[in-house]
Amino acid sequence: MKTIKILSLTLLSLLAFNCSNDDDTQITYPEGPDFSGTYAQEDQMGRPAVNTVFTSSASKDMFNVTTPSMQNAAFQSMFETNLLALSPAYADGGLNALGQDAAAFTGLLATDVLNVSLDGTTTFYDGTNLLTGRTLSDDVITVELLLIFGGEDFSEYPGLSNDNVDANDKTFLTSFPYLATPW
């Protein structure tokens, strides 16, 4: 008898549990978005055009999944070879306007991070400040062309060291979000 009582109580509680469980399904609880899971790297970028210009075609995906602290060891040599093939300005010990030979310049570029000052002017290059950030209006391609082709004083290969597109096709905003409205 005692056993039966216990059994029926158990059944009753199971039933009650099931009932209340059914009720639960009809109540909607507010739930936040699901942010679970692991996200695996596909692309990365620090300075403009580095992977594009200096990484050999077959290695571009690998460059994007090599952490910056490992990039110099993995890619500096490749970058130097490709720079020497691309530009005659570094032949025979030629330097760029930073006083760097091909090894030094590609040593800088192979670690693809953007160096940014927290103390003032932020620019890729503005004639005075160098590699203190990247602002929207910086003519980064001409700066890079000058460093690739321009030689010691930016005067070598003038036809190759400036694409003569010096500004964006829309005016940037002075306030957040700074980028111009879309076309």
Binding site: E42, D43, M45, A49, G133, R134
Partner: peptide
């Protein structure tokens, strides 16, 4: 260009980073 369509695995996809800026 800057990083637009820079590598086979990402080009044209929705994870393709084209540019990165950091400024005051």
């Amino acid at each position: 260009a800057a990083d637009h369509i820079d590598a086979p695995a990402v080009q044209g996809g929705n994870s393709d980073i084209t540019d990165f800026y950091a400024f005051q």
